[in-house]
């Protein structure tokens, strides 16, 4: 852990690495994030409308439920679980392959702090890009709900728009960002750890990749509960 935060050999090289990781972690994940968010929002809206068939409950409540579910839980947690699978396995397999093909040894021989050079830019990039990805996911999720509600005729546009504006708490966004940052740190650091300390060959690289996804997903679920308890309860 100490070597991870040692002074970089050359800031310009680390800066380039961070930029590269921003593209890989953030831009590379946009497709799956967008697709998941739109359909997640659509399903939440239709299911909420299905469950709230009560003359005492106004239709715009569906918008409130969809908005809060997406902002508080679905975007920061489910999307980060998906990223744990996509980004986590990619980080672990990249570092694992570098380990078993002696590329990490080659870095060490040159006098480069390999753990810092390989993992710090990933962690920094994850922390920088994740809030933007999650904001985008929230927007697309709510948009997906609107489209689905309108197309299916379950929630008219006017009701949905009224719902997503009603009783809005800006703190929910802050809470979601806190969760996203914690989860981003978990995904990048846990995956990098498993990849960096891979021993063996191709089989072990696969095992490290699986472990990275399993452990980071488990940690996300545990920390989701802890953070919710600490901040919202």
């Amino acid at each position: 852990m100490g070597s991870l935060f040692m002074k970089p050999e050359k800031f310009s090289v680390y800066y380039k690495q961070v930029m590269h990781e921003l593209v890989r972690i953030g831009v590379g994940a946009l497709g799956i994030v967008a697709l998941t968010s739109v359909f997640m929002g659509a399903v939440i809206t239709i299911q909420s409308a299905y469950n709230l068939v009560n003359p005492m409950v106004p239709l715009y409540a569906v918008g409130i439920v969809a908005r809060d579910s997406i902002i508080l839980e679905f975007s920061p947690t489910i999307i980060m679980l998906i990223l744990a699978g996509k980004v986590g396995s990619s980080i672990a397999s990249e570092l694992g392959t570098m380990r078993v093909t002696e590329q990490i040894d080659a870095l060490e021989i040159m006098g480069i702090n390999s753990s810092g050079y390989l993992t710090l830019p990933k962690i920094v990039a994850g922390l920088i890009i994740t809030p933007f990805v999650i904001i985008l996911s929230m927007f697309l999720g709510i948009l997906g709900g609107w489209i689905a509600g309108d197309l299916s005729g379950t929630v008219p546009s006017a009701d949905y728009i009224q719902g997503i504006q009603d009783q809005f708490l800006p703190f929910n966004i802050v809470f979601a960002m806190i969760k996203a940052l914690v989860f981003a740190y978990i995904i990048t650091s846990v995956s990098a750890f498993h990849g960096y300390f891979t021993e063996g060959g191709a089989l072990e690289v696969g095992q490290s990749s699986t472990k990275a996804v399993v452990y980071s997903s488990t940690a996300i679920l545990v920390f989701d509960y802890i953070l919710t308890q600490l901040i919202l309860a």
Binding site: Q103, A106, G111
Partner: peptide
């Protein structure tokens, strides 16, 4: 060790080139 390591060149069995 850093200054000494910068005086070392190493050729690994598989090359260990960065992919």
């Amino acid at each position: 060790r850093k200054p000494i390591r910068q005086e070392i060149g190493m050729v690994f069995q598989g090359g260990a080139l960065f992919d």
